[in-house]
């Protein structure tokens, strides 16, 4: 994790992943890999501090402001610390018709937090999300941005939370 008085770094593994993304684009268009680079940095550090964004910008070779613009525009980037597991619940209309709000309410009650809050033990952050493109599988949750969970009835939520240690 990032400490306040030390510049964050990108691990060798993160750098290798960013290099794979960079290779997809023309040599003079490294900026195209910026979004992936920020994603990879966020996976390693859990959230994007200003210092980390500057490190990513430097690695990709763009001004820090260019990276900051991207980080603040796309809503899966976390600009503030989040819990170990970020759970995003879709409540858009198609999900709402099939239990999206019930799933959100169940999570709130079970975790004892509201949207945009983190549990006291730092384990879970709950977010309300917009359409994830999986409406037929409602209710849907996204765990840590990358793992889609379908048909999240209360039983399925219990099971999922137990898995997320």
């Amino acid at each position: 994790m990032v400490t306040s008085n030390q510049a964050p770094t990108l691990s060798a593994e993160s750098q290798a992943q960013i290099d794979r993304e960079l290779a997809k684009y023309p040599a003079d268009q490294r900026r195209s890999a910026l979004m992936s680079a920020l994603r990879i940095a966020q996976v390693e550090h859990r959230w994007l501090s200003n210092e980390l964004i500057a490190v990513v910008a430097d690695y990709v070779g763009v001004p820090p402001i260019a990276a900051m613009e991207v980080a603040t525009f796309y809503n899966m980037f976390d600009m503030k610390p989040v819990g170990k597991h970020k759970i995003t619940v879709c409540t858009n209309l198609p999900c709402a018709l099939s239990g999206g709000y019930q799933a959100a309410d169940y999570l709130k009650q079970k975790l004892g937090i509201g949207f945009n809050e983190t549990t006291a033990d730092g384990k879970f952050t709950l977010k309300e999300g917009e359409c994830m493109g999986a409406c037929g599988y409602a209710p849907v949750l996204l765990v840590n941005n990358h793992s889609m969970c379908n048909h999240m009835t209360p039983d399925a939520i219990d099971k999922k939370l137990a898995e997320l240690e």
Binding site: K24, Y25, R31, A66, E69, F73, F77, E130
Partner: peptide
Amino acid sequence: LHGHHGYGAYICGEETALLESLEGKKG
């Protein structure tokens, strides 16, 4: 052919926003 992963912006489904995003900018 390469895959490019977005990171959460409905507007990028609009084709020119998508191009901006693919260039590494705000969509």
